[in-house]
Design a protein around this nucleic acid. Structure first.
Lengths: 167, 167
DNA sequence: TTGGAATGTCAACAAGACTGACATAAAATG
DNA sequence: CATTTTATGTCAGTCTTGTTGACATTCCAA
């Protein structure tokens, strides 16, 4: 079995501890690349990765409520609130009291906010596009399959809902 | 072109902005899952993700120097030093002055440190294994191809060197 | 031999996560 | 209608992990 094959003819080389470790390290190094470009842009302003995430998902689902965003981002409301407060103060995000349920705040990007979101996601998409182009369509399909399998089930739900809303 | 195909017969659907955005969100949610299990274990102790990373790479390359680790982890030496200090104080890591160059410190896991590393990587590997199993070998190959293409070039070098040392 | 480069340590600070406690307003429920 | 629950926001304090600045030690090359 030193060749990584089982007795029943199907290759399980991709399940050896060595392969798993390589997958773990690939994930670690790739995530650094994944966030590097937006981080560079953000460090010039008074913003960080947390602001990027908020702006991304508000752009993605305009009118979303704070609670909704909380569930997607997986942080505490205190933590998110600090970020939202600065974004609202700086005029990148608008918060509107809900019409049917007045407790809720619905979040929207302003023009300035949308411009920042565009700038950040352009940088991130450029890298993703290059990686996808180099890797080819089958690799991309595999990439997405593995990532989906790696998510926690509640997050997979959130991801799928976003994915399907984006047609 | 609304069907995502180009005129020259090759599908470029995987390069549409929508597909790229889905890739970005998949990466975001999957990374959360990727770190969730070790984070849970670590939160019970006085350690965090930074300790996990240090312990992982010391285990991976025993006797590595601080500078070496610095390059792999991509943080400042001051930041790494704090983490290493607590790990050394707690008897998880040993630091030996270099024999040929006395400025260098060579890092090793103690038995206790190796036990923690094992516990953390078991948890992380279990999730990776499940994802790999569900996705199948071709998807896994694609996953790794895309991740490698997404790394910064210097990091890809570090990753490849680690990968090749691990036979 | 001396001055610069490499390596590592200590101290202080900032971002961004956390918990806990509390306030307000609105909705839902008895 | 009174009470409870829900959604949101805020204040205060802590923790992890990143940062810069200052400094000590060691090595090496001019």
């Amino acid at each position: 079995m030193a060749d990584g094959r089982t007795g029943h003819g199907e290759s399980l080389l991709y399940l050896t501890d060595e392969q798993l470790r390589q997958g773990i390290e690939a994930m670690f190094f790739a995530y650094r690349g994944f966030t590097a470009d937006p981080d560079r842009i953000l460090s010039d302003m008074a913003y960080g990765r947390a602001h990027h995430r908020a702006v991304h998902f508000i752009n993605r689902a305009p009118g979303t409520t704070v609670n909704n965003l909380l569930n997607i981002l997986g942080v505490t409301k205190q933590s998110l609130n600090r970020v939202l407060r600065t974004l609202i103060e700086d005029g990148l995000v608008e918060s509107h009291v809900g019409k049917v349920d007045k407790r809720e705040r619905h979040l929207y990007l302003t023009e300035t906010g949308a411009a920042l979101e565009q700038k950040l996601s352009d940088a991130q998409r450029a890298r993703m596009r290059a990686a996808f182009r180099d890797a080819g369509p089958e690799a991309v399909a595999g990439f997405r399959t593995v990532l989906e399998a790696m998510m926690d089930s509640e997050l997979r739900g959130a991801y799928t809902r976003l994915k399907e809303s984006g047609t």
